[in-house]
Design a protein around this nucleic acid. Structure first.
Lengths: 210, 210
DNA sequence: CTCGTTGCCGGACACAGTGTCCGACATAGT
DNA sequence: ACTATGTCGGACACTGTGTCCGGCAACGAG
């Protein structure tokens, strides 16, 4: 009867280590300002110190690489940003400002990856749907919060919650991407941006006059 | 002494007619939903009924073609959108709503070209600068209008005009692109979007409480 | 009519990047 | 020793881009 013991490689994390190297190399190159579309697989492989054909044993293609990068970013960062509620503790305009300050921090940290996702989303259906699904979750939360405020009579019934929610999330996303790419990482500039975002949505939407 | 009379082709507009055919063909294909990045020169040439090599006698490359398309769109459409002033005649919120209704109409008419420009701007420096320059003009006007309002005491001094201007233009642009791609061309939907845009910026920025 | 110019056509070529496949090799475990 | 695993380097097919070229049609001047 043949043995059923299976061989184990010495380093069971060998494959994961190579993938981590490729992901890190990609991020480094994006940080240098190279557009994802202009970034060839050979360049990524060289930066990671692996053969180009090895890249393809780990990732089906560049799009899959990007989705992996984006997934990692999402896991580590975007959890807290849906927590604000107009009825929560403290002054809601202040807490909304705090949330946007956090969001700006995240956008700054992940600016290159976010830019790459946004770039590829424009012409790749898979990435587009991935990105859109993420934004749609924020839209849904925002719309829900607006509806609660409307039922409580604090937000006027005349506010179109769906449209306003899309403006806040989709418009705000693009503004943030522009902000972090166009300004240096300066605490005062970012604080001012957080205040503007919070005040504009607060007075313009949540507490718009009837 | 040799004659200095030059030959004229029978149809002096022959070249222009070919270029117009190529531009129109490109628009048709974009309207079909094909991404500009996925649209090869051979496809465009075939749709226009010219040889691929002829394409290159008229356009240096696809980017130049897109810039030509965008230039034509701009000449014919965006002139009136900078004309609103908070101090102009009539109720400013109503006139701002009217302006946004017009803007939405333009975005709908040129949605495929706008999408293509936005798509390529993400990875091509020339297109990016072209697009950014256009938006920056709107930002500058908006900031100027806000400053006038602040000096007249109608907009609070606490509003960061530069940041708010960028939010209105850059955030608004992205919202509009999303709106026209995600919703059918319906007068009520577009009117609601125009109202939301106008009211959000009006109450959230121009007439934000001090 | 001939001749020369213009513009387009179709095709060939070089190039770069993508994705696939393969033989060789190093390493580790049985 | 043998086998399995993972990587390497290289070759190949394919696609699209950009360039170049000879041939042809249409037109105008002499």
């Amino acid at each position: 009867m043949p043995s059923i013991t299976r061989r184990r490689p010495r380093n069971p994390d060998g494959r994961a280590a190579v993938e981590a190297r490729v992901l890190a190399a990609t991020e480094r190159l994006l940080r240098e300002g190279i557009r994802f579309t202009d970034l060839g697989v050979q360049r990524i492989a060289a930066e990671a110190g692996v053969a180009r054909s090895t890249f393809y044993t780990h990732f089906r293609d560049k799009t899959e690489l990007l989705m992996r990068l984006a997934g990692t970013m999402r896991e580590t960062s975007f959890g807290r940003t849906g927590e604000w509620s107009p009825a929560g503790p403290g002054d809601p305009l202040t807490t909304l400002t705090d949330v946007f300050a956090d969001v700006i921090r995240i956008y700054r940290t992940y600016a290159p990856v976010l830019a790459a996702v946004s770039e590829v989303a424009a012409y790749d259906e898979v990435v587009r749907e991935y990105w859109a699904a993420g934004l749609e979750r924020f839209v849904a939360r925002t719309v829900q919060a607006l509806r609660v405020e409307q039922e409580a009579g604090r937000t006027p019934a005349g506010v179109d919650a769906e449209t306003a929610g899309r403006l806040i999330v989709i418009g705000g996303d693009r503004f943030l991407a522009d902000h972090v790419s166009a300004t240096p990482a300066d605490p005062e500039t970012d604080a001012a941006a957080a205040r503007e975002l919070a005040a504009t949505w607060w007075y313009g939407v949540y507490r718009r006059p009837a």
